[in-house]
Design a protein around this nucleic acid. Structure first.
Lengths: 206, 206, 206, 206
DNA sequence: CATTAAGCGAGACGGTACGTCCTGTCTTAAC
DNA sequence: GTTAAGACAGGACGTACCGTCTCGCTTAATG
């Protein structure tokens, strides 16, 4: 998807896999250690034992590198975790969503994920392009799972049919996201459970 | 609450009001024009016709400057707007909250506010200290208004008494905030109205 | 000797003697401790417990301050030393001049004098005005003593009458000065004695 | 002779010759135009169209830059001038030295040389390291020429054999240097001729 | 099977901004 | 009216990174 710039596009087949990995590792490590603003391209290159040009050849910006590194990390994690990234369907919507949200709470407080995802979220707030990629590449797949589960619940008569699942899911996701992003309140299992109870009360038919 | 640093702490009584104003104006203008990352302390100083040291004397960072500038802007706006910053109480909770959310939508898309508040929100995501100040100084007062209005609704029997207003308000605020911050969806009056309908359905007694 | 500038000349009668002394002391101490380039007006003021403006009111530059401070120091030294600052006339010109040059060697290596006089000499090299004041106020009186002593020697028939004493004295003074200023060679009693022997051999009648 | 500093020592083979030249030119031009103290590293960099870091990478200080620039200028001048930088030997010592000193007078008053050499001399007075480099790299070669010529004169019986040429040459050089450096008197052909006459009278055998 | 062209590590380069220090002017309150 | 104190506009310092560039080197793939 390289748009035609002035430069002759680099030859992907000759790309050094070893360098790419080293760059991902260095980027994630640095963001975790010193924070995003003090993570520099030079620092990543030095830590990865790589020339700066190798970074500039393949990525357009620090955010780009981190986004890919984080995507890679997420894919690895998915592969390791197996089933965990789907929403269960026990028949009881409340139980199922509570379980998923508890897993989300765990992930949001996992130090391995926290620094880079905060960094990317922040960059995305201010840089629309990064924001949209963060959204489509990282969040969207998860959101779709909620949509699917809510549709199933509608078919089962547990959620009113006129409800738009795409909006309903925000009642579970957004309050948690905001507390995490903006320090508007503490995050806990108790909190997410309450969220689900309040929200489902409104979504269920009378 | 000035913590004892190494420096002798400047004399506030001698501070130049004219410089402060010029710095606020320059900071807000630059963020609007070139974006937060390309807004520099040197740029602010130059535009304000002020020495860099005058900025460093009174603020600790670019984020600090912008936070105060934005607070100042908000206070000005409040003063101009008068009554607009309270939640009306017509007796109909849905109507009242819809009105406030529509005003919020307007503000979030007002170019005068958008750039600086995005910048601050982003900084706050990554810098906890800024995040907490953004929260307590800018958002908290507004949130309290929601709490008050929801309490009144509880007394009027329109909201179930066991609901925690502090959590309930997030159903109105957070989805909108997330769409705005993370480009997770479009923002419109229709959307916020739907939000209120879905949420109140769950909050109201059966 | 304040030339008419735009400013109303300050009132000398109200000048604080205590401040002047403190400034001299601070200036000399700082030059000795950290060297001339790292001696600053602010540093002098702080060390002297004096406002910066007090320095700017009475002196035009750092060099000015130091020049006066050093003059003051020299006058003090003269007063303490009494007779030492005249050239003796024992009748033997060589002996007399050797004695004076040995005293000069001592002074040039006295750490109390070395730092400020090097500083002033250096400033004078590059700043003609300072150079001329250094010359007329500090060196000239001493040079005149040489002229007087050489004239006496001419009257006594120990120096050829056609010799210009003003030039002759440079054979004693300049080589020593250059070695000191420019590190062109070591300084010792033996060296100055040799200088006198070589030079007088040429100045004396055959 | 690179001492082990903390920095990794730049790669000399990759050094930009074009930048070095531009820096020399800018430094000499600025010193001539605005004087040494108002010549800044930033100014040199800007005028040379060079990044500041390029200066800091290769030189340790403003004095360092100027010293090398001046050395380079001198070498250029030597190359252009050819024979002019040796002391002639016509058999008549007085004539030969007078000629050289007249050339020196010319150089000391050549505006191309005056500003930078004053600046370096001044810096050398106050900064021993610079002083010694100024001495060894710029003055020493010329001084050696005097030593050689005086030795030849001793062999020819024109100078007493017990005279140390290294001290004798100071009678020609130092008075002139001091007048130039410290404004202790005017500089002219007549003056240097007199110097030679007075001095040789003492150096010659009876 | 050499040739050649790309990616690579390294790092010098022209720049911009940083945060600190100092300049010389100006203002305030104390004496 | 001088003084101590210190805020101010300005500007240079020396450092850290930016993104571009050029250098030899390794490493496929091709002629």
């Amino acid at each position: 998807m390289v748009t035609q710039s002035g430069k002759p596009a680099p030859d992907t087949t000759r790309r050094s896999e070893r360098s790419r990995r080293a760059i991902y590792d260095a980027a994630l490590a640095l963001v975790a250690e010193v924070g995003y603003p003090r993570t520099t391209i030079e620092g990543i290159a030095a830590r990865a034992g790589v020339g700066k040009q190798t970074i500039y050849r393949w990525w357009g910006s620090k955010a780009d590198v981190l986004l890919e590194a984080f995507l890679d990390l997420s894919h690895q994690a998915s592969r390791e975790a197996g089933e965990d990234f789907v929403i269960p369907d026990t028949g009881d919507l409340a139980t199922d969503i509570k379980a998923v949200l508890r897993a989300t709470v765990d992930q949001l407080t996992d130090p391995r994920f926290e620094a880079p995802s905060r960094a990317l979220a922040a960059e995305g707030v201010v840089n629309e392009e990064v924001g949209r990629r963060f959204m489509t590449q990282l969040m969207e797949p998860s959101l779709q799972l909620y949509v699917d589960r809510l549709r199933a619940a509608q078919r089962a008569g547990q959620v009113r049919p006129e409800i738009d699942p795409r909006i309903a899911l925000e009642f579970f996701i957004s309050p948690l996201a905001q507390r995490w992003l903006q320090y508007t309140g503490p995050i806990s299992y108790e909190y997410t459970d309450t969220l689900v109870d309040y929200a489902l009360y409104g979504l269920a038919p009378r």
